[in-house]
């Protein structure tokens, strides 16, 4: 097990912490954008589990799944979310974007109550894509999300939120149509890369306000125990285009 440097919060995925200088800065907001099935929700469970271990209670907000599905998925990975809730180390909230945004300019919101109830220091929101289904014009939505971000800063929680990337592979990656990528401190991208006829998962820290970070694409694997960030794609290029290939040098070496 690796230890988290002072003043940092572990994401629960050691490989990812290492890419961000040891972990997240307290109070920061991190967007985890990824294609379906790349492990966004799993990362949220890791983040919550790391908080429980560090004595930092956390709130997991889902718009997508019923709590019973999250309990089941967490249990499969060895995390007893119900027990954490019983011990006031975590709260699982299932609601709608409209309810989460309600009265976010004031105190006493639904989120304030849940965060205050257990003294939460960590917050995970899955997923911000659902705000696009509220039917609000993108300008209004950006303003409301910006208000929510300010509200979260005042709550002094360190927030990790997910966003769906619709494209499975390909050169163009659009995260949102309301510019959430400009409202957050950090961005982690999870995507599929086609390499020699096989779809593989890759992780990249696109933006990190907390100082220097690892800019390489790294191999991402989802195992029975959760998410594992491995080595970089050595000898491979064009990963960001979605259709990676071995570098000329690598191909030449393989021929020899």
């Amino acid at each position: 097990m690796t230890s988290t440097p002072a003043g940092r919060l572990s994401t629960g995925v050691p490989g990812l912490d290492g890419m961000m200088g040891g972990g997240l800065l307290p109070g920061d907001s991190t967007l985890v954008a990824g294609s379906p099935g790349t492990g966004k929700t799993t990362l949220g469970l890791h983040y919550l589990a790391a908080g429980v271990q560090a004595g930092q209670p956390g709130v997991f907000v889902t718009f997508e799944y019923l709590p019973q599905q999250i309990y089941r998925d967490a249990e499969k990975k060895g995390w007893d979310l119900k027990q954490w809730e019983a011990e006031d180390k975590a709260r699982l909230v299932c609601t709608t974007p409209k309810i989460l945004l309600a009265d976010s300019a004031k105190k006493g919101t639904v989120l304030d109550q849940v965060v205050g109830d257990i003294g939460a220091q960590r917050l995970f929101i899955d997923s911000m894509s659902h705000f696009e289904f509220t039917g609000m014009p993108s300008g209004d939505l950006r303003e409301r999300i910006s208000g929510l971000m300010n509200h979260l800063r005042l709550l002094k929680v360190t927030t990790v939120m997910t966003h769906e990337i619709a494209q499975i592979v390909g050169p163009a990656v659009t995260i949102s149509n309301y510019g959430i990528e400009f409202l957050v401190d950090n961005i982690v991208v999870l995507r599929y890369v086609e390499l020699e006829g096989e779809l593989r998962k890759a992780l990249n820290v696109l933006k990190f306000r907390g100082g220097g970070h690892d800019k390489k694409y790294r191999v991402l694997e989802l195992t029975d125990e959760g998410m594992v960030v491995k080595s970089d794609f050595a000898g491979v290029e064009n990963i960001s285009l979605g259709s990676a290939r071995r570098t000329v040098k690598e191909r030449a070496q393989r021929l020899v």
């Binding site: 019923l66 709590p67 019973q68 709260r91 699982l92 909230v93 299932c94 309810i99 639904v110």
Partner: peptide
């Protein structure tokens, strides 16, 4: 009981 974290409107 199965989903204690639900926060919803009556309509929802």
């Amino acid at each position: 009981h199965d989903n204690p974290g639900i926060i919803e409107t009556l309509e929802g």
